[in-house]
């Protein structure tokens, strides 16, 4: 479904090549993790996949094929038709990824307004449904609230609801739980798992934390300095890491939690 071939991204401003030849493939309904230390190029990769990088800021080469169409070279119109509808994105910062002046419910509906002909009543119904699915309390009440009236965990749920409401084929989550405390983290991961299971949504989960990836993803790619250094079944990679860097990443996990 999504296939990345030899992706390179170099920033023109600094001349730095943040992504240096990434190959990845995600099939329908698959959950893949992308791990690596800070600065390894995970976010830049995600941004390139989702079309968020301004093309004139960077030098990009390679291919990002989504259902056969190259997102790096297609027109903005074509890209926009995929964005939101087929590929949803959830960011690290639930605090800032919602519009502070727009009601939460309206933001959950937004993607329906952009991509579907659904009537206002239908949109509202779908939004409320999605909000209930992601575990937001009293959807009818929360619908009318503004982001600052929600907790961090609730905001992240709202963001996930807004990405999920249209049932995309792929959800890219860039450190979706990093800004949240541990219990909420676990809940959000559980939520992502059920969303993926119930709707067959593929997930690309980006994290610097192998444990998070292990909880959710059946396969994992390890990124180091802009390259994928190891790639495979999550448990397999955990049990028999082939790459020196992966071994260090695993070794860095506190012992107590390593075999939970």
């Amino acid at each position: 479904m999504l296939e990345i071939k030899d992706l390179h991204v170099r920033f023109l401003s600094t001349g730095k090549e943040a992504v240096r030849g990434v190959d990845l493939a995600i099939g329908p309904g698959q959950r893949m993790g992308l791990v690596g230390e800070s600065g390894s190029g995970k976010t830049v990769t995600a941004m390139a996949l989702s079309g968020l990088i301004e093309r004139w800021n960077v030098d990009m080469s390679g291919q990002v094929l989504f259902e056969g169409r190259d997102l790096l070279t297609c027109s903005r119109e074509q890209l926009r038709r995929v964005q939101g509808k087929d590929i949803g994105v959830v960011f690290q910062e639930p605090m800032t990824s919602l519009n502070p002046l727009m009601k939460v419910g309206r933001q959950v509906e937004e993607v329906l307004k952009i991509h579907t002909q659904a009537s206002p009543a239908e949109r509202r119904r779908l939004a409320l449904e999605a909000m209930a699915q992601v575990g937001l309390p009293e959807p009818e009440v929360t619908y009318e609230k503004y982001p600052h009236q929600l907790s961090g965990g609730q905001r992240q749920r709202a963001v996930i609801a807004s990405a999920m409401v249209i049932h995309p084929k792929l959800l890219i989550c860039d450190e979706p739980t990093t800004a949240l405390d541990v219990t909420v983290q676990a809940q959000i991961l559980e939520l992502l798992r059920s969303v993926s299971r119930d709707y067959g949504v593929a997930i690309l989960l980006i994290s610097h934390d192998l444990r998070v990836v292990r909880k959710l993803c059946e396969s994992v790619a390890v990124m180091y300095k802009g390259r994928i250094v190891e790639h495979g079944d999550t448990e397999e990679v955990f049990a028999h890491p082939q790459d020196e860097y992966t071994r260090r990443l695993i070794a860095a996990i506190p012992k107590r939690t390593r075999h939970e």
Partner: peptide, 20 residues
């Protein structure tokens, strides 16, 4: 980020400028 989110939903420039 909220503008980036809107763009990632496929919102057009006019929509983002006027509505968001």
């Amino acid at each position: 980020d909220y503008v980036a989110s809107a763009r990632l939903m496929g919102a057009g420039d006019v929509r983002i400028l006027l509505l968001h």
